[in-house]
Design a protein around this nucleic acid. Structure first.
Lengths: 333, 333
DNA sequence: CTTCATCAAGGAAGCGCTTCCTCGGACAGT
DNA sequence: ACTGTCCGAGGAAGCGCTTCCTTGATGAAG
């Protein structure tokens, strides 16, 4: 850890002057100030926020107070539900949950420095559609990190993650479709680069193969509604005889159902559909969706406890947990 | 501020021993340990986390890394969208966003102590359905606080808040209904105790009164889907001749539309409906909802800047901003 | 040439807590 | 009675930074 003293020494000034320069005080000669800035840059100096708070009596952190009911209202998306579980679990400990935003246009390096400057003991990531780069980035750091959702295998580091049983869940989905007498079953996946997509596709295809059915009717999408609508269109163009479809998120299912209706196919009479997540969308849509339920809140909570374990024993090796999924039967199949 | 030295003095031991006792170290005589605990309790001692981190080289805070796309996915609920705006704004500053959870069963006093122990410079609250007690509680503290949503008037303290133009928005809603030729217009409100409900009801009733229409067809609900469904039923029972309804949230509207359909009323032919929020629900429902759009993300962002202003100049008096709302026309009216 | 401001810079104290190290006392073993 | 252990407790240093106060230097004013 590089301290202000190091910077001062490097710049050939006193710690006092260095402090002033860093904080942009005007009572320091421009030349020296510049020297300090250079030294700080060179050494990669990041002021220790704790020391700062202590000395200043101020903390540079604000609280967003989230009441339980607040979060209960966000029963919608994948992220929100996992967040709910995580916050509840954190509240049991005496830790503070700091939210860090990684902007889309921020460089890996910059974010890493930001993360380190935040002086946190560990980090958690709820993996979603576009997070494929984050695991690689965080693997560089030696900060304890837990992912919610399995990162893609292409990162060869001993990462820790909590995930739901995606293979098992999509097997359930496929079997429900098969049991309903469907024989031409397609699948709309998330990005192929994501671990979840890979796992769910595997479970789906294994089930179809086991029944001797064609498992090659697959369209890649992005977990979002619009993407789901488009993928459904593609699938229908290529396989007009389709009579069942497994869609890997409720959001995409919303889009897919729209396309199906627009093309005059009834759900479930003409095309049966099973989706994944069991968010509110599954119950507000017409028809209500038969979907694979993930224990999102439990996943969030387990992510927190796993991180605690990781921080306590960093050498103990990666933590990898899988929580069970289940099929919620409604009206779309 | 009461420090460890104060506790040690009160307990008649050294600071070292006090520290050990507080941290539950076993090398301290039970009797003295108890004395320290008592002293700490009596003085209301809360260890300063900054000093602790500094001394221990550890921080007891973990980061939840939220990537931008993560949040963009939560375009659903009121809370999520406001959160999005707030986090983006916070990211521009060098502050840390700490999330604090207030459990439903937690006492006011306990939470207040927890809040103070968190050593934050200020706090923000996104007001929702059940938060009516929070403003009163926070008014007791002298911590700078900004609310998103106007707290109810019953708290007589100079609170700061950011809100959208609820009066104007519901006026728009009422006028849209009137312009569509509706004459028997009901309203489903949120809890009467909430500032938002009061403001929206006021705007709605003023508009109806101005047109000489009956503005007494009101049913109170809770901003949630189930509540909306029930309230719609009540309204229909009491006023079978209803031909229009203003529903104060998209979530409740989802429920209300369900009830309407179940009772054989077509939307908008038989009963026209305008809701409030413009969340994704408004576009996934059938029919798509005509709704009053709140600039949720801007509200979240403004909440952050307002808090910064408040912290910088606590004596400058309360900050109260109102952001404009607008009507998004779709298919429900 | 002396006296005063003025300004940049450093010394040193201190923020509140933890923890290493030392020390005295109690107790057991010889 | 003497040495050796062990245990509980305190002194003091130190975590990394800010800031009050002092000092030396420079230039303007008398």
């Amino acid at each position: 850890m590089v301290t202000l003293d190091d910077v001062a020494r490097e710049a050939g000034v006193s710690r006092t002057t260095a402090s002033r320069a860093i904080n942009g005080k005007l009572t320091v000669h421009p030349e020296r100030s510049a020297a300090v800035q250079r030294a700080a840059e060179k050494l990669g100096f990041r002021p220790n926020p704790a020391a700062r708070s202590l000395a200043r009596g101020r903390h540079d952190s604000v609280a967003l107070i989230v009441s339980e009911t607040n979060i209960e209202g966000m029963t919608n998306s994948f992220f929100a539900m996992a967040l709910h579980g995580a916050i509840r679990e954190i509240a049991k400990t005496d830790q503070q949950l700091v939210m860090l935003l990684r902007a889309n246009d921020e460089s890996d390096e910059k974010f890493l420095r930001f993360l380190e400057a935040s002086h946190v003991d560990g980090a958690m990531v709820i993996l979603e559609a576009h997070n494929t780069e984050l695991p690689r980035l965080l693997a560089q750091s030696d900060l304890p990190v837990v992912f919610l959702g399995r990162p893609t295998e292409s990162v060869d580091a001993p990462l820790s993650y909590i995930d739901s049983d995606n293979v098992g869940g999509s097997t359930l989905a496929a079997e429900a479709l098969i049991a309903a007498g469907r024989r031409r079953i397609g699948v709309i996946t998330g990005p192929h680069g994501m671990g979840v997509s890979q796992d769910r596709l595997r479970g789906f295809q294994q089930a179809l193969d086991a029944h001797g059915l064609d498992s090659s009717l697959v369209a890649e999408s992005d977990f979002q509604t619009v993407g789901g609508a488009e993928a459904m269109g593609l699938l229908l163009d290529q396989h007009p005889d389709l009579d069942g479809v497994f869609v890997m998120s409720d959001l995409m299912a919303a889009g897919a159902v729209g396309t199906l209706k627009a093309r005059g196919r009834r759900v479930p009479e003409d095309v049966a559909l099973v989706s994944f997540d069991d968010t509110v969308i599954a119950t507000t849509l017409e028809p209500r969706l038969t979907t694979v339920r993930q224990p999102l809140e439990e996943l969030g909570a387990r992510m927190v406890t796993a991180l605690a374990e990781l921080i306590a024993a960093p050498a103990a090796g990666p933590i990898r947990d899988t929580l069970p999924t289940s099929l919620v039967r409604r009206d779309s199949v």
